[in-house]
Design a binder for these strands. Structure first.
Lengths: 184, 184
DNA sequence: ATTGCCTATGCAACTCGTTGCATAGCAGGA
DNA sequence: TCCTGCTATGCAACGAGTTGCATAGGCAAT
């Protein structure tokens, strides 16, 4: 449903092939929407059939031809219509939270290293976001509309990671406290 | 994959029928894992076949019989094994973020009411969490291990909602600033 | 009296998303 | 030289998740 729209946004920002889109979804767009190349190819074919995007074959030597897609007028209109209709609140799937509650029926100490691993991942992501912010938005007073919107989404990612790091510290303190008071 | 484990945790906390589980997933567990009754019934049947849960038919008058499930030893063991293996980082699907970036190719003002709607939803959720915290964990010094773990997960939810509210205010300010500088 | 909602389970059909594999030439390192 | 990895697309099969509908009696309100 929404993958089409994420692809449209990406193609409006910059036309590209399915492969290039897949890599963008691994990087920037993947911050708030994930997709594999399989999904992307399938949806692109459907979108082309619907006239939402236009494709142009680009022959390359030494490597396979690529189909460069760009957003068509019908796609832009579909995006505008989607913008105006309400979206449901996100459905959350937080596996780590399930594990934390599961730890009550097992040894809480067994979770510590797993939580530490997640903490490292989030710390690395925060560092990447902050670096990207420095690089792409050095002067917050000189941004056009598109950049301001990209920036506010990035700020959301940064705040999410900060919050998550603080929470994971809270979780670690709780697990360690429980492990100390439970000398198996 | 993880739905089994979420169900096991819920059944360890309290045995119940498929229907009861579905309602729990609408309430507390649904904070970090969503599931419809269809999924739950299907998975419960599989788990029963695998010996992870045991079912007992409970006849009721005036309404259909129910099957009350409880976690079996094999289920508890499977949960313990799962606790010890790493989970992948969550895959994020943030539709609102896609919309915000899409607003660059349309009228930013068209998004304001949608963002306000989301803001209200998150504010209501935060209020519910804070109320639940008051009710379930009034004295933070007198909690057993299970309650402490439930509480730390709830604190994560509270912090997430607080962060989201602050970010949505940031988004609204950005959208309004852009709308003001773009007198169509 | 009818309408609508609640308990309780389930089938069937569908879409969404993932995984494994295949092709095919080129570049770089062990 | 072989192995790995990159570009570029795609098929096939599967598993996860959603939606619509069905049954079936009870309760409460209009």
């Amino acid at each position: 449903m929404a993958l089409e729209h994420a692809i449209l946004v990406s193609l409006l920002e910059q036309p590209g092939s399915g492969y290039e889109l897949a890599r963008r979804f691994d990087r920037s767009i993947g911050r708030f929407w994930t997709a594999t190349h399989q999904q992307i190819y399938r949806v692109l074919r459907r979108m082309e059939a619907d006239g939402w995007v236009a494709a142009q074959e680009v022959p390359q030597d030494g490597r396979p031809d690529k189909k460069v897609y760009s957003a068509a007028e019908a796609g832009r209109a579909a995006l505008a219509a989607w913008l105006r209709e309400p979206v449901e609140p996100e459905t959350v799937r937080h596996e780590l939270a399930v594990k934390i509650r599961a730890a009550a029926f097992d040894d809480p100490a067994a979770l510590v290293s797993e939580v530490e691993r997640h903490r490292e991942g989030h710390a690395a992501l925060l560092a990447r976001y902050l670096h990207g912010e420095q690089r792409d938005f050095p002067d917050a007073t000189a941004l056009d509309a598109r950049q301001q919107l990209q920036h506010v989404v990035l700020r959301g990612g940064i705040e999410y990671e900060r919050m998550t790091l603080a929470w994971l510290d809270d979780v670690l303190a709780t697990l360690r406290r429980l492990a100390a008071n439970r000398p198996t």
